Computed example of a mutant assay.
Amino acid sequence: MWRSLARPVCNCSSLLVRSYNTKVKTKPLPSFRLPSSRSTFAPLGVKSVGRPGPPPTQAQTQSSGSGSAPAPKDRARRDEEITAAYITFVDENGELHRNVRLENALQQFDRSRYFLIEVDPTARHPVCRLFDKKALFEKAKQSKKKKTTTPESVVKEIVFGWNVSPHDMGHKLNKARQFLDKGNKVKVEIVSKKGQASVTRSDQQETMAKVVAEMEEYKLSKPPKLAGSSCFMQFERK
């Protein structure tokens, strides 16, 4: 009796399994390909690094500098102003080190004593040399001193008319003597002023001779020269 009851149950369960398998189609598993023996694995968080290539050229590294402010136009680039990533480094002993990273070169000398100055920016790896700061400052100081205006380079002007009175001429020439004694050069100009009577050529010659005679203790560097109605002459200290 029990066997007869179990057969219908088993038949029903087998029918349910068959009908389910026909409706549900299983997807095939994705294929997984193992890497070849040449492939390398890097630990998590670490990038895989291959063989180091040749250092970049100057054109490739011009934008790889430190990003500091550019150098002034009146001097060469120095220290962090250098834009190349790789340089030819000349140390304080004059020894040449090729293909050196700029950041490494800046760590190889006393920054308080030396400047690293780019002396040849046109090279593939710009040539940069160490210069003593104290020597550079002294050189700049001497150059600035030479450019300072000396009294001998200053020319003062004294102007008066042809009809000048003896008193006024004496006053003007005394002022010229003060300039000359300080080391300046003095240019004396005699002109025709508006409202004054015209003078003859002989009167002009007489006035010029008086000025030269009054200033005889000084050197007449430029003799009197007439230009139209005016006369120019120049004196300097002997």
Rank of each mutant, 00 (worst) to 15 (best):
L220I: 04
K193D: 01
V17W: 06
T22R: 10
K146Q: 12
K210D: 01
A140F: 10
F137R: 14
Q58E: 07
M1C: 01
R33D: 04
P28R: 03
E80T: 10
P30G: 02
F115D: 10
K144W: 04
L16W: 06
Q204L: 01
N93H: 13
T207E: 06
S37I: 08
I158C: 09
T83S: 00
V49P: 05
G195W: 04
G228P: 05
K225C: 11
H167D: 03
N93M: 01
R7Q: 13
N163W: 01
L173T: 10
M1K: 02
R237F: 09
I117E: 07
S31K: 14
S230G: 06
W2C: 08
N11W: 05
P70F: 05
T40A: 12
V49N: 00
C128E: 08
W2P: 11
A197N: 02
A71H: 12
T22H: 15
K145E: 13
F41Y: 15
A135M: 12
G50P: 02
K182I: 00
A209V: 08
C231A: 12
A123L: 02
L15T: 05
E189W: 01
L116I: 05
R78Q: 15
P72E: 06
F235C: 03
R77T: 09
T61I: 10
S68T: 07
S19G: 03
D181H: 08
K182F: 08
M233F: 13
K187D: 00
P55Y: 13
R129N: 09
T61Y: 09
S192P: 02
L5P: 09
S230V: 03
V90N: 00
D203I: 04
F232S: 15
K134C: 06
T57Y: 00
T122F: 08
T148A: 14
A85C: 08
I117G: 02
S64F: 13
K147T: 12
S112L: 06
L130T: 01
R101F: 03
F160Y: 10
V46E: 12
R98G: 15
K156L: 11
V9H: 03
P224V: 05
Q234S: 15
A135E: 10
Q60Y: 12
G50V: 01
V9M: 04
L5F: 15
Y114E: 03
C10G: 11
Q108H: 01
S112G: 14
L15E: 13
S37R: 14
